[in-house]
């Protein structure tokens, strides 16, 4: 009786989470900006952590909780590293554009 209830709860919750994850991946695919994509990936990892927690209850294996913790660390790390890298890339590109624009301007004044 109790085992059935656990099974229904866990399978139902995991089904819902799987659907949500696919929806998040759609957001990641269509997201117009980089921050949308990073955000969607972050949400997917959050849902994954909940899923691992449900697996802990479903399989009655305590060690899976460790996996949830590790996943939390890694998802946070992924978000901050991606944010830093993309900010750096954007700034570098913008700097290059400014430099080339300034060079063109200087050449223009020299010609005159």
């Amino acid at each position: 009786m109790m085992a059935d209830a656990y099974q229904v709860l866990c399978t139902g919750a995991m089904g819902i989470l799987a659907v949500l994850m696919v929806v998040c991946l759609i957001r990641c695919a269509i997201g117009p900006r980089v921050s949308d994509r990073i955000m969607a990936v972050n949400m997917v990892s959050t849902l994954t952590i909940i899923m691992v927690g449900i697996m802990t209850v479903y399989l009655k294996e305590g060690y899976l909780a460790d996996v949830a913790l590790v996943y939390a660390v890694l998802s946070f790390l992924a978000v901050i590293v991606l944010c830093k890298v993309y900010t750096g890339i954007y700034r570098e590109r913008r700097h290059a554009e400014t430099v080339s624009a300034l060079k063109e301007e200087q050449e223009g004044t020299a010609c005159r």
């Binding site: 900006r33 980089v34 921050s35 990073i38 955000m39 972050n42 946070f76 978000v79 901050i80 944010c83 830093k84 993309y86 900010t87 954007y90 700034r91």
Partner: peptide, 15 residues
């Protein structure tokens, strides 16, 4: 999570 949001927001505002 708040720190991740902060960095994401910074990225968004900046880019």
């Amino acid at each position: 999570a708040p720190v991740a949001s902060h960095l994401l927001c910074r990225l968004e505002v900046e880019t």
